[in-house]
């Protein structure tokens, strides 16, 4: 079986004037359909760059991103992104924000009533149908992120890319949203790649955790499988041996073997 998404020997260098900085080196990874993969690493290791490469927002310097054996090098709705700061358009209501995506992606294939149903279905999925006529400024940070997820899901993406989606949220809201994402993942069976710097979050949500070494020229240090059955419940997992073992493995990687050195840059 060929991989659903394949990162094939990707290098990424940024050139500014005569200065060439190597950010990512020789990234090799395959991801199966329906898998939930987290990418974890210290800040500055290039994990956001990696996500942007998969999204097509940044171009690879060498190597290729292959989705279903086809190279992708430009952004598109089949690789929808949930941005860290939600990126909702403030002049549109919740409904209109999603409608912008839906009418662009399904403008030809779905009728008006069908599109409306699709928008409402995605809003229901993140439990935000009640706020559909509100503007982003009128809802809380967690709600905005829910709408951001709904907008990405409404594009019916092959892969959902989440760029530190809960980074700016408080711990309680974050837990609610993690549960919401787990629920969506199990209901839709979507393939998801999430950037995070939260070890618990990575272990709780992921099938596999991709651990990045520190930059410059960061690469994948280790890939850890998380053999926990789904559905997962955070309270039960808090004392689960497998959970704790996985958690320890990630912590060891991050803080013993690839200790973040501020002066390295």
């Amino acid at each position: 079986m060929t991989a659903y998404l394949k990162l094939d020997h990707i290098d990424k260098t940024f050139t500014r004037g005569s200065q060439v900085s190597e950010v990512l080196k020789d990234i090799k990874l395959t991801i199966d359909k329906g898998e939930f993969v987290s990418i974890i690493g210290h800040s500055g290791c290039g994990k956001s760059t990696l996500l942007n490469l998969i999204a097509g927002l940044t171009k690879v310097s060498s190597g290729a991103v292959l989705l279903e054996d086809k190279e992708v090098d430009s952004p598109g709705p089949e690789r929808a992104v949930v941005f860290q700061n939600h990126s909702l358009l403030p002049w549109l209501t919740v409904y209109e924000n999603i409608n912008l995506a839906v009418s662009k992606v399904f403008g030809r294939s779905k009728g008006k009533a069908e599109r409306h149903d699709w928008i409402m279905r995605n809003l229901d999925l993140v439990q935000m149908a009640h706020a559909r006529n509100k503007r982003p400024a009128e809802i809380s940070g967690g709600m905005k992120q829910r709408v951001g997820i709904a907008r990405a899901l409404a594009m019916e993406p092959k892969i959902l890319l989440l760029d530190e989606p809960f980074g700016a949220l408080d711990a309680l809201t974050r837990a609610h949203l993690q549960d919401a994402v787990m629920d969506i993942h199990s209901r839709l069976g979507s393939t998801m790649i999430m950037i995070t710097h939260d070890v618990d979050e990575a272990v709780l949500l992921s099938d596999r955790i991709v651990m990045m070494t520190n930059g410059p020229a960061a690469t994948i240090g280790e890939v850890l499988s998380v053999p926990l059955a789904r559905p997962r419940r955070r309270i039960e997992l808090a004392s689960d041996r497998t959970f704790l073992r996985c958690r320890e493995a990630v912590l060891k990687f991050l803080y013993e073997r690839h200790h973040f050195v501020e002066a390295a840059e």
Partner: peptide
């Protein structure tokens, strides 16, 4: 904001 441009690019 760059994010709005990225939204537009993803939506093509």
């Amino acid at each position: 904001p760059e994010d709005y441009r990225n939204v537009a690019r993803i939506l093509r």
